[in-house]
Amino acid sequence: MSAPSIKVSQPIDWTGIAFAVILTLVIVFPLLVVGTWAFTNVWRFPSVIPQEFGLKFWYQTLARADVWSSITMSLTLATTVTVLSAIICLPAAYAFARLDFPGRDILFFSFLAGHAFPKFGLLVAIAGIFLQLNLIGTFWGVVLIQLVGTLLFMIWIPVAAFQAVDRRMEEAARDVGASPLRVFWSITLPQAGPTIAAALLLSFVGTFYETEGAWLIGAPQVRTLPVLMISFINNQPVIQYGAVLSVLLWVPSFIALLFARRVVNSGSFAKGFGA
């Protein structure tokens, strides 16, 4: 994996630099615009920079009851989904990693299936079922639909993490007198810990940002922050409300990215996908 770094003086790669600059512009520029809008009080055409900067719309946005209730909703929802997902998926991941049972491989790859179809079609079908079960517009309905979305991350990444744990370590723990359950708790889980933490974070963030399912199943009673943001952007003539919410929504993803780097760097993520 890690090739020794060889220092060779190379000619300046102008094409590469050009690509980097263009990519940066394409990615960063919209972010910059949204960021600027969030801190703008007045910005009228044709001025290139806003006439007046300020936190006016932060006060206004944060003064709204629906914003706070949706933040609470999003956090509660993401936490509930992540905890439930961990309870369901971690033992399953351990089974996939360590046990051999009939249909193991097919079952393992079936978690990809949910991601292999246009998601919206699947959601509509599920919404039909939920309607009959009276789950539409309920908190638990949204929890259920988002659980499905976390399965892939929460199975595949922990499977790689468990597989990476040295079996001799587990055997050594059995040897000194630990029961299989104790071995899992004291040895396997801490060893796989950092990678599993990253999976938990990814699932938390993924749930936090998920809009389609939350909107289709939850609306109008259950409103998460991203769903609220979309309705702001669609229905409000004032751009700043949407911009402020967007900036608010960056915070968790930024934290998640810092942690996710760890998984990607360690290669466990890639291993989870069979690399």
Binding site: D166, R168, M169, E171, A172, A173, R174, D175, V176, G177, A178, S179, S186, I187, P190, Q191, G193
Partner: peptide
């Protein structure tokens, strides 16, 4: 008998120490 019940102690080729614990905790675990 399962390994945890046996009066045997095994030293593994790869030492198999628990890297998330310090030396004391490795020895104290059992």
């Amino acid at each position: 008998m399962p390994p945890e019940k046996r009066p045997t102690g095994m030293v593994f080729q790869s030492h198999a120490l628990w890297t998330h614990m310090d030396v004391f905790k490795n020895l104290a675990f059992g």
